[in-house]
Amino acid sequence: MSDESPKAPSLAPVSLEDPHLQPYAKHPGRAEALAAAAMVIGFLGFIGFGITYWISDQTQWEAATLGGGMLALGVGAIAWGKYLMPQGPFVEERHDFHSTEAERDAMTAAIVERGGMVVQRRKVLGGLFALGSTAMGVVIAFPLIRSLGPKPATSRQATNTDTSLFATNWKENSQLVTADGRIVKVADLDVGGVLTVFPKGHEGSSPDQTILIRLAQIGPDDPPFQLESPGRTDWGVQGYVAYSKMCTHLGCPVGLYQKLTQQLVCPCHQSIFNVASGCIPEFGPAPRPLPQLPLKVDAFGNLRSQSGYQQAIGPGFWERP
């Protein structure tokens, strides 16, 4: 400290009576009383919290005592700082923190000339080192990224639902069951009823979730149920239709069925699908109809699928044709 001459002249001593050192408050006594009262309340609050914790663990009381205690203690500290400490105002000079031109030049020179000279002399070493580090950078990314998970199966023929965005476990003749494995019979739903179903053996699986809706009461011998969607007139059976439950927007389960209007509503972003006309999106951001699952009834009155889904379910992605 001694090798620098003190910059005393600019820092004249200040007298205790100096107005800058007076508290900000007009009535320091009152301010002090306020701060003291607040701090006492704070202390009592914390004691209260300790007691509450041991005897009841009641959340509201804990919040009131702990929060109240901190609030009061904080107000006390602020009052102390704001009203009772030297009011100032005080000033501090700013100093340029950028370097002088000469210092900048020196740094540039060190990099460009000293460094440049070294590289100039040993160009091969520089090149080899750059090569080595680039190779390292690239191969280190392999375990960092590639080990994270399996590659997606991007072929439409892939069948493993763990990796394929195209596959589901619905096949020809899959038996419809509920999430807890109960077999779904043709007599199960009344008109307007809905049920989430899965292919037997894959209960609860995300890509297989399918919503089964009974649109009409049609007996086995009545003429087949007419869907308004061309080419799919026989995909429903006895008034039942089934669609993928995965929204084509962002994959939320399309969970709300409005009986009166025969619409499926996605609660995520309010896409609305018209069930009677092939689940065409009528409203909202969903771009495509929900894929339909063709149904049939077997000899025991159990619902089964005629085949799997004929297109990729769920939201869009690059590989989807």
Binding site: A8, L11, S15, L16, E17, L21, Q87, F90, V91
Partner: peptide, 15 residues
């Protein structure tokens, strides 16, 4: 408050 001239933080307090 603003009416006082701002001064540097005192190096020490006299008196």
């Amino acid at each position: 408050h603003e009416e006082l001239e701002a001064v540097p933080v005192p190096a020490f307090i006299d008196m």
